[in-house]
Design a protein around this nucleic acid. Structure first.
Length: 244
DNA sequence: AATACACTCAACCGCGTTGAG
DNA sequence: GCTCAACGCGGTTGAGTGTAT
């Protein structure tokens, strides 16, 4: 089912607030459903991505620590481009973040190697043993030299038995210079239960929601409930404050 | 100060997998 | 077992920002 007038592009603060609200309400699994009932003109896919990569309170922000960098390198050697899997070993980091980091890392490395290649007269006889005709090493060739079996875009790794479907666990909040949006200041995510995986977040907005009963609702019921909920959202003083 | 270039990161797309009917 | 919708993952793009010239 294709939603007409689906919105794309950067998310607004208001959309973020709205999404957080509905994720708290229905959990972080039924994305198409959330996309529908929230009134956001976004696809479920888009909602999920926004949550996973940005809004999830379990996310760490800021630069990778040296330890994390080392871990990424080690795990990539082991598993290849299985970013989500690598991300599971780095609490608070997303696959997207790691992927981006890796690209940057590889680019830097490629540049450095290129420099070395250009300035060393022997021009890396080892790597030239491959079939690469170009004198300038490509990212792929560099990676291949380092890790003989996998190119840069090779998924590598032998273990494809990824524990799909399992909930991510072990997310722990490390309070390192988080630059979470104002939203999270409002939502006060650090109150107690941030050590939970995919936290059920304690936030003021939550106070307006009935608790467990909602989780048991089926789709029809929730629609009925949410019909007024859309308006309710904006009638809640707290939400209005957040929206500004 | 202005411009070009490099870098970062949020977001989109396509495709494979999963699970419900 | 088949179909189809939803989900999740990896690859790619492009806007915004920082840095060098």
């Amino acid at each position: 089912m294709v939603k007409e007038d689906t919105k794309k592009g950067p998310w607004t603060e208001q959309e973020d607030v709205q999404l957080v609200f509905y994720v708290k309400l229905f959990g972080d699994r039924r994305w198409d459903f959330i996309a529908n009932v929230s009134g956001l003109k976004r696809t479920g896919k888009s909602c999920r991505l926004r949550w996973v990569n940005y809004l999830n309170p379990g996310l760490k922000r800021g630069k990778m620590t040296p330890t994390e960098e080392k871990l990424v390198l080690e795990l990539h050697k082991k598993w290849g481009n299985r970013w989500s899997r690598i991300a599971r070993k780095l609490p608070g980091r997303t696959d997207n973040e790691i992927k981006n980091y890796w690209r940057t890392h590889m680019r830097k490395e490629a540049q450095e190697k290129r420099k070395k290649g250009l300035f060393s007269s022997s021009s890396s006889s080892k790597s030239s043993s491959s079939s690469s005709r170009s004198k300038i090493p490509t990212i792929e060739s560099i990676q291949a030299t380092e890790n003989k079996e996998c190119s840069f875009y090779d998924t590598g790794g032998l273990d494809f038995l990824v524990d799909r479907g399992k909930k991510k666990t072990g997310l722990e909040i490390v309070d390192d210079s988080n630059t979470m949006d104002e939203i999270f200041n409002y939502l006060d995510f650090n109150e107690g239960n941030c050590n939970l995986p995919y936290q059920t977040m304690a936030s003021p907005i939550w106070d307006y929601c009935p608790n467990d009963s909602l989780w048991a609702m089926d789709e029809e019921e929730s629609k009925m409930f949410l019909q007024p909920m859309g308006d309710l959202f904006y009638s809640i003083p707290f939400c209005n404050n957040m929206i500004g």
